[in-house]
Design a protein around this nucleic acid. Structure first.
Lengths: 152, 152
DNA sequence: TCTGAAACATGCCAGGA
DNA sequence: TCCTGGCATGTTTCAGA
């Protein structure tokens, strides 16, 4: 499927604020309300628009401490990877987990309240998972940029 | 501000799907439509709910290649940091940028189409920024988990 | 694929418990 | 903080260009 410039503009607007009404969007895009409506429906049907969500202020809900954890497994058989991946997916503190190339196997993005909570997480949850070789934690000092907007 | 169990449940529901109507939410939470409406407005007013957005399928919009880039600056004076940070914020390929503790200064999450596009980005954009010491790229092999849901 | 209008659902605001 | 009720505003469908 090809996205024309109007689709791209529409997706940018929805990525910045999905609460805009179709009427508001129609004005910005010089289209009718129905035309905008149908474009959105098409993008949803095609799966280009994955979902509509609310983003919270992490600080205000007491999850402002972000840690990146680089992790190695002790073995790399398919079974080990599968088990580890299904376990790590269950952990709510882990927002993101990627299998990566390079010196370590996985990179995890973890959100908790503070250092104390992270220590607790590390000791009681992460390092109790099977097959974990080593971990290396990198702490966030400052969030410079954090967006979900993909520019097409 | 304190969040009661109903608020937490409401936030979880909105974080998974913000398109739910207040009517639908009222049924799930055993409240009236207005009560749900007022709780949501309160959460928006307080800034707990930061924003409503659409999330796209990165693969389908040709931005499925994710790279983590660890970066060092050549100097660490405040001016250098500020300039670098304002420049990196402008780059649409950089979804996230954190100032971190440890062996390097920044960790960047970058999305592009493929390896070729990444090379192009690295050569023409990232390494042309001032004061950059070294970069180290880690490529994603597989996305195990990627959520925006913060469990409170 | 677009427009415009009509039917339907939802959001939103009173007023009161 | 909650509820009931009603008006305003939104979404969605459909015929026609």
């Amino acid at each position: 499927m090809t996205l024309d410039p109007t689709d791209k503009k529409l997706l940018l607007l929805l990525q910045t604020d999905s609460k805009r009404t179709t009427k508001e969007l129609s004005i910005k895009l010089n289209l009718s309300v129905t035309a905008v409506y149908e474009r959105i429906k098409k993008l949803e049907r095609e799966g280009i628009i994955d979902k509509y969500v609310v983003l919270l202020d992490k600080e205000k809900v007491g999850k402002g401490f972000i840690v990146f954890c680089h992790l190695k497994l002790i073995q790399h058989t398919k079974d080990f990877l599968t088990i580890f991946e299904s376990q790590v997916t269950q952990l709510p503190e882990v927002l993101e987990c990627y299998h990566v190339s390079g010196d370590y196997d996985y990179i995890l993005k973890i959100v908790v309240k503070d250092m104390k909570a992270y220590r607790e997480f590390l000791v009681t949850k992460l390092t109790t998972l099977h097959h974990i070789g080593s971990t290396q934690s990198t702490f966030m000092i400052n969030e410079v940029k954090n967006t979900t907007i993909v520019t097409i």
